[in-house]
Amino acid sequence: MSMKNKIKNFFYLEEEEEDVPVQRQQTVQQQAPARKSVKERRVNQEMPSPTVVSLQAAHKASKVILIEPRVYAEAQDIAEHLKNKRAVVVNLQRIEKDQGFRIIDFLSGTVYALGGDIQRVGTDIFLCVPDNVEVDGAISDYYYDDI
């Protein structure tokens, strides 16, 4: 072998030459375990060892935040909860009607930007959820006054 071939084999740039006589090759294979090809070595080096993760650790506990804003400035705090992937129930019964409309407009934009959803669940009560929470079902708009 030339010096160039020895260097290539040392750095595994090329596989070993296959021009070795058949008898000698068979004895070499019987004596030493077969060498892995360059591709096999690279794949084994690139592939990380499998990691075991507990499902309980992977599934983070979800929170639902209940908020009764008193002023419009609290809308930003509600948006922060949504950005942190928490569902928020907003009760607007203790705030003036015009400020309630402004809060819902602000939260509608926030929920839209985050890919979430906003639903009315009662009189002046809204459920805002980020994209990682799915809301199933609907509440009708018909209310019973005599019950």
Rank of each mutant, 00 (worst) to 15 (best):
E18A: 15
V38K: 15
N44L: 14
P33W: 06
T51D: 10
P21E: 13
K39N: 11
R70P: 01
I95G: 01
S49N: 12
R41Y: 07
Q26I: 00
K60A: 11
F106M: 08
Q29M: 09
V90F: 06
Q29R: 15
P21I: 04
V20H: 15
L114V: 08
S62T: 06
D19C: 09
V22E: 14
M47R: 14
K63F: 06
K36D: 02
T27S: 14
L55N: 07
Q76M: 04
V43L: 10
V52W: 12
Q30G: 10
N91L: 00
G115R: 12
S54K: 07
A75I: 00
Q29T: 08
E68A: 10
N44E: 14
A34T: 12
L66M: 12
P48V: 03
G109A: 02
Q99P: 01
P33L: 03
Q76W: 02
A113Y: 13
R24G: 14
V90E: 09
D98V: 01
D98I: 01
R70Q: 10
A87M: 04
K85H: 14
E96M: 03
V53K: 13
A113G: 12
H81P: 06
I65P: 04
A57T: 13
D19N: 15
I95N: 00
Y112N: 15
D19A: 10
G115T: 07
V52M: 13
R70M: 03
R102G: 02
A58Q: 13
V88L: 10
V53S: 14
A113F: 11
H59S: 11
R24F: 09
I67W: 11
A57L: 11
E74Y: 06
L107F: 05
S49K: 08
A75F: 00
A87D: 02
L82A: 03
G109L: 03
G100H: 01
V71L: 07
P69G: 06
